[in-house]
Each structure stands twice: as C-alpha cells, then as structure tokens.
C-alpha cells in the first residue's frame, strides 16, 4: 500500500498549499489524481515520492511509515518510488547522454556493472533507438527526452511510479506510447501507479480509478 494520511504541505512556514489531504493506493493499483493547476496535487505527488517533507501527516509505504525525506530517507525507500515530471527539459541533466541518463540511478547506487544491460533492455521498451541513446538532451525532441526520463524512473524497478503531468507537453502519439510503456512495466512487475494530471479523458482511460483532488481533502462540515 501507498498511504498518504492527512498530509499538510507547502513551501513557506505556516502557509501550507493544502491541509489534510489523504489518498491511498493498493499494490498494483493505478490511481489518477485529477485537479486544476495550482491546487497542490503536484506537491502531494512530491510528498509521495519522498521529495518533499510534509508539515504534518503520514506517508506509509508498504507498511513502513516514512520518517525522513529527500537525502535523509533510506536509499531503499527512496528508490522504491520512481518519478516522472512534467517538463523533460528541466528533469534531465544537460551534460549526460540519454544512455547515461537512464543508467544514472544504477551508477548512483553502486551497480554500474548492470548499467549496459539494463539500458539495452529499457531503451526498446520506451521506444528509443541505439542512435538516440548516444545523444545529449539538446539534440533530441521533448517527446524523445521524456521517453528517456520514463526509462530512468524504471531503471531500479520501483514498486511504485509517480507520474506528475507526464504527458502534458506531449502530442497524442507520444502520450499513447509512454502510457503503453508504463502499463507494460506494471503488467510485468505489478507496480502501483499515481498519475497526476488535469486531462480527465486521459486519466479515465489510463487508470483503474480516478480521484478528484477535492475528494482527497476533508469535506467541510464532515
């Protein structure tokens, strides 16, 4: 289970973006989180990916309560959640080739030896050719770069995937290709998914269930 329980989070002290948001995802389940821009759904996604420490509330990941975020979180916990962001340009280190980008999590965790095999395995799964793997971000399109960013999120075989507006900048064909790659991975590994977005049609088609942002918050008067 991935359980977010009464989470309050924000970027300035005493001025939270939202209060008491709750959401839980069963193992292997895919949940779409739907809401207008600026409502805080991306912040909640960052909390779920252990990238933003909430001001209050609990995150329970597969039965273990998360007590530390970002670098302080144990590596095994951090890498159990893969993340894909909205903007591939800012999510990719401009100095790395796409192959190095995908292999980076293995290098960072001291498993460099497996890198070549894993990249060779992931590249076709997200639709990248060997030639594209040798290029750097500035020499590929947004769609191609986002494919590499998805591959990077899958490198360490996470049990959970958080996709924050993964396809908002992309055309229909690339969107369908990336969603298909995520679903293939989930079929093979049984990973759970939190897909954040504002496109109802897309999330309804993609996910097992779709949750409105306002239903994550406590009901007034309840």
């Amino acid at each position: 289970m991935l359980e977010l329980d009464s989470v309050t989070a924000g970027y300035e002290p005493r001025r939270p973006v939202f209060r008491d948001a709750s959401l839980s995802i069963a193992p292997g389940e895919s949940v779409g989180l739907l809401g207008p821009s600026g409502c805080g759904k991306s912040t909640l996604a960052r909390v779920a990916a252990l990238l933003h420490r909430p001001d209050a509330g609990r995150l329970v990941l597969d039965g273990t309560e998360v007590t530390a975020w970002r670098h302080r979180a144990p590596r095994a916990q951090r890498t159990a959640v893969g993340v894909v962001f909205q903007q591939p340009r800012t999510a990719a280190d401009p100095r790395l080739t796409l192959a190095d980008l995908i292999a980076e999590p293995l290098r960072a965790t001291g498993r460099k030896a497996e890198a070549a095999d894993r990249v060779a395995e992931l590249a076709p799964a997200v639709g990248l050719t060997p030639e594209l793997l040798t290029r750097r971000p500035h020499a590929v399109s947004d769609g191609q770069l986002q494919r590499a960013c998805l591959a990077r999120a899958l490198t360490l075989r996470p049990r959970w995937l958080v996709c924050d507006e993964m396809t908002a900048m992309l055309d229909a064909s690339t969107t369908a290709a990336l969603v298909a790659a995520v679903e293939t991975y989930r079929r093979e590994t049984g990973a759970g998914l939190l897909a954040v977005g504002h496109d109802r049609v897309l999330l309804n088609r993609w996910c097992d269930r779709t949750v409105e942002w306002k239903d994550c918050l406590p009901h007034p008067g309840a």
């Binding site: 962001f85 999510a91 999590p105």
Partner: peptide
C-alpha cells in the same frame, strides 16, 4: 529544486554524488 536534481535523489544518489 530542479527536477533533474530531484530525479537524482529519487534514483538513490547520495548527497555527495548530487
């Protein structure tokens, strides 16, 4: 707070590696 740094953290990179 750039996403590529966040992606590195999420990919298990240590503070020193980042």
């Amino acid at each position: 707070t750039r996403p590529h740094i966040e992606a590195a953290i999420s990919g298990g990179a240590s503070r020193r590696r980042v």
